[in-house]
C-alpha cells in the first residue's frame, strides 16, 4: 500500500475525489446516450436553424403588432409590480417570524414550512394552479409570482434576521418596549438595508417570470409569445424577445441606479 518515499508526488491524487469524478463521468455519458440524439437529427436541426433564422429576420415591426406586443408587455410589467409589492409586504412579516431568533417554534415552524412549500414549485406550476382557481388572466399570474416572492425573499430575509446582533435588541427590550416596538426599533433598522437589496433583486426576477406565466394562461406577454412560436411567426417571436430584453435591461439599470443613490 505504502508508496516508496522516492516516488513522492507534488500533487498526490485524492482517491475519494477520483472515484466521485469517474462516477460523474460515467453518469454523464449515460445521460448523453439517453438523450437519444442521432447525428441525423442534429443535421436536420442545423438545416432547420437556417430556415428558422431566415424567418426570424427581420423582426416584425408592423405597428398594429407592435401595439399588441406593447399591451402584453405592459401587462407583464403590471404583474411584476403587483406581485413584488404584495409579495414583499407578505415576506417581511413571514420572514421575521421564520427567523429562529425572533419567534417561538410553534409560530416559526409553520412559517418555515409555508416558505418551503412556496419555494418548491416553479412559478409556472403555481400559475397553472391559480389559473384553475381564479381563472385566466393577470390575477393568476400575479398570485403565482407572489408565491415565488415569498418563497425566495422570506427565506433569505429570515437568514439575514438570524444574523443580527442580539445585544442591540436586548437593550431595546430592557427599556420596557413591547414586542412589536422591539421589532421595529431593535431589529428592523439592522436588516432593512439588506431587505431593500433583496427587493430590488426580486423585482427583476418577477419581471423575467412575468413574461412567461402567460404560457399557461397567467396573463402578460407570454401567451402571445407562445402562440407566435406555435404558428411559426418567428419574426414576431424575435420582436417580442427583443422587447423583453430591452425592458428587463432598462429595469435592471434603473434599480441599480436607485440602489446607488440610496446606499
Amino acid at each position: 500500500m505504502s508508496r516508496p518515499a522516492l516516488h513522492r508526488q507534488a500533487f498526490p491524487p485524492n482517491r475519494g475525489k477520483q472515484a466521485i469524478l469517474s462516477a460523474l463521468i460515467v453518469y454523464l455519458v449515460y445521460a448523453v446516450l439517453a438523450l437519444d440524439v442521432s447525428m441525423a437529427r442534429i443535421v436536420t436541426g442545423i438545416g432547420n436553424a437556417a430556415h428558422f433564422f431566415d424567418r426570424m429576420f427581420p423582426p416584425n415591426t408592423d405597428p398594429s403588432k407592435l401595439a399588441l406586443i406593447w399591451d402584453g408587455m405592459k401587462q407583464s410589467l403590471q404583474i411584476a409590480i403587483l406581485s413584488t409589492v404584495v409579495g414583499l409586504s407578505l415576506s417581511l412579516p413571514i420572514g421575521l417570524i421564520s427567523a429562529r431568533n425572533i419567534a417561538p417554534a410553534w409560530l416559526g415552524g409553520p412559517a418555515r414550512v409555508l416558505v418551503m412549500i412556496c419555494r418548491s414549485f416553479h412559478p409556472l406550476i403555481v400559475a397553472i394552479l391559480f389559473v384553475k382557481a381564479v381563472g385566466f388572466g393577470v390575477l393568476a399570474g400575479a398570485l403565482a409570482l407572489v408565491v415565488a416572492t415569498v418563497g425566495f425573499v422570506a427565506k433569505l430575509f429570515a437568514e439575514i434576521v438570524e444574523e443580527i446582533s442580539p445585544k442591540q435588541v436586548e437593550a431595546v427590550r430592557a427599556t420596557g418596549a413591547s414586542t412589536l416596538s422591539v421589532l421595529l426599533i431593535g431589529v428592523l433598522p439592522q436588516v432593512l438595508p439588506r431587505f431593500a437589496g433583496l427587493s430590488a433583486y426580486q423585482l427583476d426576477s418577477n419581471l423575467r417570470n412575468s413574461t412567461i406565466v402567460g404560457i399557461v394562461g397567467g396573463g402578460g406577454i407570454g401567451a402571445m409569445l407562445f402562440t407566435a412560436s406555435q404558428r411559426f411567426d418567428y419574426d414576431v417571436v424575435l420582436t417580442i424577445i427583443l422587447i423583453i430584453i430591452a425592458t428587463i435591461m432598462t429595469l435592471e439599470f434603473v434599480t441599480a441606479r436607485i440602489r446607488k443613490i440610496l446606499l
Binding site: 445585544k167 442591540q168 437593550a171 430592557a174 433598522p189 439592522q190 438595508p193
Partner: peptide, 12 residues
C-alpha cells in the same frame, strides 16, 4: 440599563 458594549442600535 447601561451595557458594557453600549448596545446602541447602530444604524439609528
Amino acid at each position: 440599563m447601561v451595557f458594557q458594549e453600549y448596545n446602541l442600535v447602530e444604524r439609528l
